[in-house]
């Protein structure tokens, strides 16, 4: 149901989930991903993992991006673990209490990804304005844009947009794009969200 490529399941407590693998009760552990930002000093990683294990999280994998630094010169670490929804929240709180900088935690930031197409007079209607107005919408951020204008910039062109939306806000993000497309007389080809099985 949730279109989360990284396995973040923010709706694990949704017992009405009609998919065959759905219907997890709140007590069923599901997989969560947190992205942490660690200072490049010995012992930091271990200090960050304690709150997870101590609060009942079952560690699955740790991806320590040593070569890659955040703008603040810290090291991003991605940790996957299993926990119930309640425990997951406790773990995130515990990490923050320990002073670990949590960049993304499960349902908090852009958990859903949605790809859509726009076609029409994209260039004439100011594509960069279109993109920045989508970007300005609280629910989503534009992650990727591909443009095809085979007949030059004054003819009909097409664009593929990949948006990252906050958990549960894909529909809000789509509604914002829909409104913008209407205003600029662009055609929007929406994905069938929640159907891709």
């Amino acid at each position: 149901m949730s279109d989360a490529p990284d396995g973040i399941d923010g709706r694990s407590d949704n017992v009405d989930d009609p998919t065959p693998d759905g219907g997890h009760a709140a007590a069923t552990p599901s997989t969560h991903t947190v992205r942490l930002e660690l200072v490049d000093e010995p012992g930091q990683l271990l200090a960050a993992l304690h709150p997870i294990a101590d609060n009942g999280g079952n560690l699955l994998s740790i991806y320590h991006e040593r070569g890659n630094k955040t703008p603040r010169g810290r090291i991003p670490v991605e940790v996957d673990f299993e926990a119930t929804q309640d425990r997951f929240e406790e773990i995130v709180d515990a990490l923050r209490t320990e002073g670990v900088n949590v960049m993304q935690a499960g349902t908090e930031r852009y958990a859903e990804e949605v790809t859509l197409l726009l076609f029409g007079h994209l260039i004439d209607t100011d594509l960069s304005d279109t993109l920045s107005r989508i970007e300005a919408c609280e629910s989503a951020s534009v992650a990727d844009v591909s443009l095809a204008a085979p007949q030059g910039t004054e003819e009909v062109s097409s664009a593929r947009l990949r948006l990252e939306a906050r958990a549960g806000e894909t529909e809000t993000a789509l509604a914002a794009v829909r409104e913008l497309a209407d205003e600029k007389e662009l055609r929007l080809v929406e994905p069938l969200t929640g159907v891709e099985a």
Partner: peptide, 10 residues
């Protein structure tokens, strides 16, 4: 009015 370029991008 769906242009070929839309299908190519898809």
């Amino acid at each position: 009015d769906v242009p070929g370029s839309t299908l190519r991008l898809a």
